[in-house]
Computed example of a mutant assay.
Amino acid sequence: MWIRGFSFWIKGCFLLALVSIISGLEPELGFTRVVFQTKYGDIEFGFYPTVASKTVDHIFKLVRLGGYNTNHFFRVDKGFVAQVADVANERSTPVNEEQRREAVKTVVGEFSEVKHVRGILSMGRYDDPDSASSSFSILLGDAPHLDGKYAIFGKVTKGDEMLTKLE
């Protein structure tokens, strides 16, 4: 019985993936959520491990190490982005050696067909497409000019009203 259910689940996942590709639907979020606590309230993030697996793993490791604790938004452009500061160099309190080691690692650019729209999480980087490390942006509006150029790895699942306050 379990095998049959598992087989059905696999076929269902394949069908869902195929429908998503054909119709251009948003990819499925993984189960893990991360909550950023801000002075305006909490913002919950969901992640796209099937879209940017290396980026998601990197962000999870930084979160587990406490790398984003005492961090801040160093840039907020109304209707565009709220950008989280680089963990290694711009955090409010010093990082320990393990946090620094992980924060300076770069992640290969995992570009996708997912669109840069309000609530999307998108990695910051330099000119090199494989230079993303720990800074990322929360989109505060649609930004089609970023599509295919920056790695999208998740989206806001709760707390959109906090983004409005942040703006």
Rank of each mutant, 00 (worst) to 15 (best):
R101G: 07
S122P: 05
A85E: 13
A151Q: 07
V95S: 09
F31A: 13
W9F: 15
F74S: 14
F45N: 01
H72E: 04
L62A: 07
I152F: 01
D77E: 08
G41S: 03
H58G: 02
G119Q: 07
T55M: 05
I22E: 03
F111R: 13
F136M: 08
I3P: 02
E167G: 07
V81G: 11
F47Q: 02
S53F: 01
K158N: 08
A103V: 11
M162R: 12
D142K: 13
P94V: 07
G46N: 01
R75D: 08
D77I: 10
F31D: 12
L140Q: 12
G141R: 03
V104W: 00
G148K: 07
K149F: 06
R64C: 01
F80E: 14
V19D: 07
T50G: 09
K39G: 10
G124C: 05
F47W: 00
A17G: 12
G12R: 10
D128H: 02
N71E: 03
F136S: 08
L139Y: 05
G141E: 06
I43A: 04
T157F: 00
I59M: 02
E110F: 05
D130A: 10
F111V: 15
T70D: 15
E167M: 09
T157E: 04
E90F: 13
P94H: 11
V156G: 02
E90A: 11
T55I: 00
I21K: 15
G66T: 05
G109T: 09
Q37I: 14
F8Y: 09
G12S: 14
G141Y: 01
N89A: 14
Y150V: 06
G141P: 05
V56H: 02
A143H: 07
V114Y: 03
N96H: 14
N89I: 09
I138F: 03
D142Y: 05
L15P: 10
P49H: 03
S20E: 15
S112P: 04
S133G: 10
Y150A: 11
Y68R: 05
L166K: 00
N89S: 15
E97Q: 09
T32W: 04
E110A: 08
A85R: 04
V84G: 03
K149Q: 12
A82L: 05
V114E: 12
F60P: 01
L16Q: 15
R75C: 15
T157N: 02
V35W: 01
V114W: 02
G109A: 07
S131V: 02
K165L: 08
A85W: 03
S131N: 05
D130Q: 07
V107N: 04
R91K: 14
L140K: 04
E28P: 06
A85N: 09
L62P: 06
K105D: 02
D127F: 02
D42E: 15
S20I: 15
D130W: 05
F8W: 13
L121Q: 11
I3L: 12
H116E: 12
A82P: 04
T164M: 10
P27K: 06
S131L: 05
S112N: 14
S7F: 13
E110V: 15
D147Q: 10
E28I: 12
V34C: 00
A103I: 10
V76L: 09
M162F: 02
G30L: 04
Y48D: 01
R101M: 09
P129S: 06
F60M: 13
A143E: 08
S135N: 14
T32N: 11
V107Y: 01
